[in-house]
């Protein structure tokens, strides 16, 4: 799951903005790595790829600030569903 998200973020959202491997704990939102449009793309990607519907109340910084945070969120959602 981590790798999938990392690939998406690296290839689709960041492109050549940042060279080298992106760390999963790196803050995606603060330093201009991902803009608001990128955030919408990331949310759409997570919904499609992991078959989730993300309600507005979950669209908060804590759930999307890093690849680790996104994985944590998906994990919690999957736990409550099963």
């Amino acid at each position: 799951m981590k790798q999938q998200i990392r690939d998406f973020v690296q290839k689709t959202l960041i492109g050549d903005l940042k060279a080298g491997e992106l760390s999963t704990s790196e803050n995606l939102l603060g330093g201009g790595l991902i803009d608001s449009l990128g955030v919408m793309q990331l949310i759409a990607f997570v919904e499609d790829e992991f078959d989730l519907s993300i309600p507005t109340k979950d669209m908060v910084i804590e759930n999307f600030e890093s690849i680790d945070a996104v994985c944590g969120y998906i994990g919690r959602r999957k736990d409550t569903e099963s």
Binding site: L29, D35, T56, M59, I61, E62
Partner: peptide
């Protein structure tokens, strides 16, 4: 307002 909040309106409202 830090950048991250500008991307998440729910967080900004809070």
């Amino acid at each position: 307002v830090p950048e991250a909040y500008k991307k998440f309106p729910v967080s900004l409202a809070r």
